[in-house]
Structures are given as structure tokens and as C-alpha cells.
Design a protein around this nucleic acid. Structure first.
Lengths: 256, 256
DNA sequence: TTTTCATTGCGTTATTATGACACAATGATA
DNA sequence: TATCATTGTGTCATAATAACGCAATGAAAA
């Protein structure tokens, strides 16, 4: 099926495949070069950016839909993913954008399930930046990482969704271990601290941070140190998966 | 419009009024006689109980839908209400219950938007028990309070929804003031403590509790004491609304 | 009237957690 | 070989927390 056929199919038959009025939008966080990043799509004809999103198949669990979307945009499986809020403004509709879209590919349409109001469930994902291969979807020209402090214009309420996701992430940081999903398998203490500082958007005391993190017992220090740094070499650490999972479930009273 | 007509209208025309596939379910918490209660409806023909729920009008914000449902079941306005989770199992459908329901009122039906899969958004409400007048809806025989530790059989995943709401409430207790919505306007310290103990399901030290709660500054002690108790009379307190609201927004680092 | 007793208000103390900071060790670069 | 940014480890004062003591209250029992 060629591109036009696929699009027409989606606009005029999509409601036979997907649930109406409900969508899923993903805020995909990555960490790179000491900066917190978010993966965005450039919506065709909207001239604005958008969160990776999609719809729920009629027999599909919502979490699975989010995983599917994540997999399509990043190539990643088995990702830490959770819903964080539902956005339901009655004005949430991409009618104008989608009509322009159809117009530009030479299709006149007054009606489509895609023009209707959508309630969207926000999902938050934490991924290993280095393992992601961004892939655009059929509504988008490109798929790129953006610094959290340098977000472009976005369609609809996507900026609000992003903000809520960030606040959610910040709040979680005090109760749950986070780094496992955002860092590579081994990392140094300064790297982990930078991650926390970036998410919380404030400086932390190096020594107190180390004491508290190690106090939780979720880290295992390796005998290996980082090579090629022009100063004392920091140790590498790994997460102790067993204790990490335990801390995830039990939560950890934790004040940074 | 009589009862039958109203029901048939709902089953066969409801989708013109409401969004398909989406519902809202409310976990309504009250506090009475030192026990945490939840308001449930007895679903006709299901023989089981259910959370008060409903649907979203096509042009209605979801929060407004939840408020509307709450108002209809309790008579209350301006209630503390928040979404806490979305439940989306593909098997979430009241098809069987609703078909029995229609059958019993003499209507044969193979198709109705009400038979389809529903994704439901869970809302949690905190209300003043003494002000509630429980009212059943057209799908229910009765509307009653249940002790949180003595919940009857419930339809679908409503038990899971209730559990999630309770966990959510417990988690909030450490960061946000709660009592204002659940207690009458004036109350004693032991009453407030009982509320906390009931929600958290564990004993708290009387003296430490008082120190911490007062430390937040959200309470104002009245000059009045409780009358007619066979021991030292406790003072009455009120919430300092200004500081209470402030604490709601800012959160309060708080460990019980 | 007096005594009893469960409960309250207000307090103390030991322990633990937290924030702020000092200092020697490291290892590539100058 | 000296320099220097950065790391590992430790200290100390302060704040928060848990555990508990004791006198005061006031209706009910004696």
C-alpha cells in the first residue's frame, strides 16, 4: 500500500481499527551530555512539533499501545513506561491540522474520526539515549531530541503535557530509584548526580548525594575506574537490580 | 419520559450524547465513627456492587463529568476531586450485565454502545460524610456507604480501582493536608489523628502526631473544648484555610 | 462529696538524618 | 616533576524523628 492509500485508509477506516476519542501521547525522556532530552516529532503542515502519539487498537491494552508507539519511534523494547495524567479539554482536536494535511495530499474531507475530539492519556518513558534510533511516523517529517530547556512550539496542549510529565518525574525522584532506565549499564557517581541535578534543576552537594544514594543500597561499585580523565578517576557503578526493584516497589524515603 | 423510555434512549441513543469507549468512575471517600467509608451502588441484576460512574458528554471536560456524577450521587458541589489512574483492560465491558438488564425489562438487543469496551478514568473524591444524601442512579437499586475493610463483591475491576484509589490517598497523606475535605468544620486532635490512622492503617504516636501537624501551621486552635466526655476535654481545631491551600500547592515534607 | 480513671496538653531525651564543609589522594597535562 | 581539577572519605553542628514521662482534666463511680 502506497503512502496516499495508507493515509486515506487511516482517515476513513481507522475508526474500525482503533477506539474513537482516545489517544496516547508519550513523553520520552533521554539523558545525554548532562542534559535532559525529550523526543519530538515535526508534524507535517502544522509547522509545529508534537509528542509521539497514537491510538489504541480495539482489543489492545492501553499500556501495550504506548509500548507499540514507543517501539515504533525509538526501536526500543521493554522500556520503563507509565501513565501519568489524562488530558481531556473539549477543544482537543487536530481537525484543522488534519484537514490541511488531507488537502495538501489532494483529498477533500469534511468528516473523519480523526477530526473529532480526543481525550489523551499521557505516558512517560525513560530511555537510554544511546540506544535510540529516532524514526518519524507518517504524519511527521522528522523525529528529533530536544533539550528540556529548549522546547520548540508544539501543537495543541502538548507543552502542557510535557510540563506535567516533567513535574511528575521530579516528584518521583524522591521516592523511587530512577537512573537505571536513563543511564547505560555502568556509570560514575558524578554522572548519576548530574542526572539528578538535571531533572531537579538544582545543584546537589557531591558528598551528601553520594552518601544518600549509597545508603539506599541500590548501587554496586565495580573495581573499575574511568580512564582518560585529567584528574582523579571516579569508580564505575552498576545498579543492584534486585535491590533496585525492591526499592521501586517499596519506595524509599529520600530527601535530596 | 418514563423509566423504560429513558433506559432505551440511553442504550440506543446514548452514543449521540456521550463519548464512546470512555467512562469515569468515582471512589468517594467519607469518614464516620472513626472509620473510612466508600460510597457504592448496587447494580441492578448484577447482584454486585459498583463504583458510582458515568460518561462524558461530547463537549464536556472530563473533570466536569466527574463533578456531575458526584453531584448526582451525593448532592454535593465543590468537592475535592482528582483523577488518579486509567483502567484499560480490553475485557472491560458490562455487555453481559447490561444484556441481562435489558432482557429483564423486556428489550432484546444485540448491539449498543453500552456493550462495547470501556476505558475508565478513576477519580478520587473526599467528602464530608454528614453532608451526603446517597442517591442511586437508574442502573442501581440502592446507594450505600461501606467500611473500607468490609467491601462487598464488586463488578468488573472495581475492586482494583478502589484499591488503587486507597493507595493513592495513603501516598498523598505524606505531602498534602487531607482532613479538610473529610472532617466537619471543627474537630478535635484525636479525631484528626484517627482519620490519619484509618487511612494509613496503622497507629501513630499521639504526642508526635500533634507536634507535627501543628508544626505545619495549617491548624488554628479554638478556645472551645469538647463537652460531655468522661475525661480531659480536647480542644477543637479548625483548618487555617489560607495556610491549608498554601500547603496544598507547595506540598509539605512530612513523615508520619 | 470524694475517689477513680481514661484521656489530654505539654514536655524530655536518645537516636538518626541532614546540610555544610575539610583534606588527602589521584592521574593526565603542563 | 609540578600543577590542578576532581574524587573518596570523613567530621561536625543542627534539625528531625521516635519513644516515653507526668501533671491536669472532668465525667463517672464510690
Amino acid at each position: 500500500m502506497d503512502f496516499h492509500e495508507e493515509l486515506k485508509e487511516h482517515f476513513f477506516k481507522g475508526h474500525e481499527k482503533y477506539l474513537r476519542h482516545i489517544s496516547v501521547d508519550c513523553v520520552i525522556f533521554g539523558f545525554c551530555e548532562n542534559e535532559l532530552k525529550v523526543l519530538l516529532l515535526k508534524a507535517k503542515y502544522a509547522g509545529k512539533w508534537a509528542l509521539p502519539g497514537g491510538f489504541i487498537l480495539k482489543e489492545e491494552p492501553m499500556d501495550t499501545a504506548a509500548e507499540r508507539i514507543l517501539k515504533e519511534r525509538t526501536g526500543l523494547d521493554n522500556i520503563y513506561l507509565q501513565q501519568f495524567y489524562v488530558f481531556s479539554d473539549p477543544g482537543r482536536s487536530t481537525k484543522k491540522i488534519n484537514q490541511t494535511f488531507l488537502n495538501n495530499i489532494g483529498v477533500k474531507a469534511d468528516e473523519s474520526w480523526m477530526f473529532e475530539r480526543f481525550i489523551t492519556v499521557g505516558y512517560s518513558a525513560l530511555v537510554d539515549f544511546t540506544k535510540v534510533q529516532p524514526v518519524a511516523d507518517i504524519f511527521s517529517d522528522s523525529c528529533e531530541w530536544f533539550n528540556i530547556n529548549d522546547i520548540p512550539n508544539m501543537i495543541l496542549d502538548h507543552h502542557q503535557i510535557l510540563n506535567k510529565a516533567l513535574k511528575n518525574l521530579q516528584a518521583q525522584l524522591n521516592f523511587q530509584p530512577i537512573g537505571y532506565n536513563l543511564l547505560s549499564s555502568k556509570f560514575t557517581m558524578p554522572e548519576l548526580q548530574k542526572l539528578y541535578e538535571t531533572i531537579l534543576n538544582r545543584k546537589l552537594d557531591r558528598r551528601n548525594f553520594q552518601r544518600k544514594i549509597l545508603g539506599t543500597g541500590i548501587l554496586r561499585r565495580l573495581d573499575e575506574t574511568k580512564k582518560g580523565v585529567a584528574h582523579k578517576a571516579p569508580y564505575y557503578y552498576k545498579f543492584d537490580l534486585r535491590k533496585y526493584q525492591k526499592a521501586l516497589k517499596a519506595g524509599m524515603g529520600f530527601e535530596l
